[in-house]
Write a protein that binds this DNA or RNA. Sequence first.
DNA 1: AACAATACTCAACACAACGTTGATTATCCT
DNA 2: AGGATAATCAACGTTGTGTTGAGTATTGTT
Lengths: 201, 201
Amino acid sequence: MTKKLNDKRVMRTKRLIRDTLTELMEQKGFDAITVKDITDKAMINRGTFYLHYQDKYDLLEKSEAEFFSSLEQIVRDLNPQVAISLTSQNEPFPVIVKLFDYFQETAPFLKALLGPKGDPKFQVKLKEMIKTLMRQVLLSQVNQEDLLVPEEFLLSYISSAHVGVVQYWLETGMQKSSEEMTLILAKMTLLGPGHATGLLK
Amino acid sequence: MTKKLNDKRVMRTKRLIRDTLTELMEQKGFDAITVKDITDKAMINRGTFYLHYQDKYDLLEKSEAEFFSSLEQIVRDLNPQVAISLTSQNEPFPVIVKLFDYFQETAPFLKALLGPKGDPKFQVKLKEMIKTLMRQVLLSQVNQEDLLVPEEFLLSYISSAHVGVVQYWLETGMQKSSEEMTLILAKMTLLGPGHATGLLK
DNA sequence: AACAATACTCAACACAACGTTGATTATCCT
DNA sequence: AGGATAATCAACGTTGTGTTGAGTATTGTT
């Protein structure tokens, strides 16, 4: 007998718990949250929580995993060829635009996790993913021997920069569109044929 | 009657507690640490901890404050003129070199706080400080009207990038000297007269 | 519509860490 | 040497943890 995965009760409860987690993380930050906090706010029995998650860390892990799974799906969906191809500097990378679209959809969750009360591990994972993307771009655009800086430092620099800009964008209310953000990032990043010409007039 | 600040017992205990915090943060991360963990490892009575700190969050705050206080001292010590003056691309910024020197001294603490089990608030504060430094450099080097990208995005980009590189440097065992690191950063950063010429041959 | 499965509730449990207290001992400063 | 105070120790109630067993409510299935 396999467990029933489509039970309305289970789905309702899980979504309730995860939404409550997001709300509480914005308010008090993850480590100040107790399981009791979550179940009180979600108005479910504390025992119910333990029916679905081992503890609050398990909940966080599974929520993050779900996020990254969607993110990887988005990257994978786009034809890799198209994905890593650079366009002219006045047209945004298609992948990055899609990523920003998804960031916007999941903004409350993302903002909480990337904010000052968030999870540093999550930030590391996100950087790692961007690093992988950028490594492909780098390989396709630049001869390794031409680099005057160790590749890994450059990738750390760029991926951290990108995450930092996303954080700033989230904090300031996401005033710019996905396309605008992608263009801004492209101009600041030393990659691609138009590199170093995008920043100054 | 003012409290005596130079009591050997107090200094010994405080240093013991803070060093133990650093060690434990590397091992299990801040939020997994209990006061009992700290006092057990430091072999002091649990009550003694509460004689000096309200709770573990208070301890973390005061440790961070001490770090930033030293950091600001270093920046302030250097003549501001010298501090923000850029040198040729083959000579490191003097301030940045000094900062890396201090990072190296406090490496265990810093590594713990900037690592995957660290404190996101600390990262924010460090970025903020670098942002302030970079804002000065930006003002002295570039005409605002010439920027094709909003200033705050650029500053977020650069400061996050710098912190990210420091993280990578700490994680990988600080194999490069402060001078080397400063040069690498300068080459990757689009600021100063030699900008955009440092990355590729 | 009725039944079986199971998600959820509820009350209770032992356990661990918290933050505080009062009394005692050890160490430091002058 | 003597007064001040830091550190120890044992004990306290409180809060959250993770688990259990028994009852209730919802759900998917036939």
